[in-house]
Amino acid sequence: MATTQSESTLLPAISEFPMAIFMPAAMLFLLMLLNDRDIMGNYINRPWQNWSAFAIVGFLILANGLYGYTIVFPSA
């Protein structure tokens, strides 16, 4: 049973799409944990670390949105 090119590339794309959605959510949850003084004590993030972390998460949300768009609409 031979697979075509589209079948061999569709399965990895479908499996990566949920990861692209849930990765930024997990990173935001981790940032919330890192800013909780009850959990982290004196080791909470400094303001510059929060700004850079939110910039990175924002970039990942944008990149994952574009990736998801190219999966849903491959010819666009």
Rank of each mutant, 00 (worst) to 15 (best):
D36N: 15
D38H: 12
N35I: 01
L31H: 06
A20K: 14
P18A: 10
W51E: 13
F17V: 13
F17R: 15
L30H: 03
I39F: 07
F29W: 13
L34T: 00
N35S: 09
N45K: 10
L33H: 07
M40R: 04
N42M: 02
N35F: 02
M32P: 01
A25C: 06
N50E: 15
R46K: 14
M32C: 13
L30Q: 02
P24L: 02
R37S: 03
L34M: 12
P24E: 04
P24W: 03
L28G: 04
F17N: 14
F29E: 11
L28D: 10
F54Q: 14
I44S: 00
P18E: 14
Q49F: 02
Y43M: 08
I21M: 11
M23G: 03
I21Y: 02
M32D: 12
M19P: 01
N45P: 07
M32W: 13
L28Q: 09
N45L: 15
Y43T: 00
Q49N: 04
N42T: 06
M40C: 10
A25Q: 06
R46W: 04
N45A: 10
W51A: 14
L34H: 02
D36K: 13
A20G: 14
A55I: 08
N42H: 08
P47Q: 05
I39P: 07
F22T: 07
M40T: 08
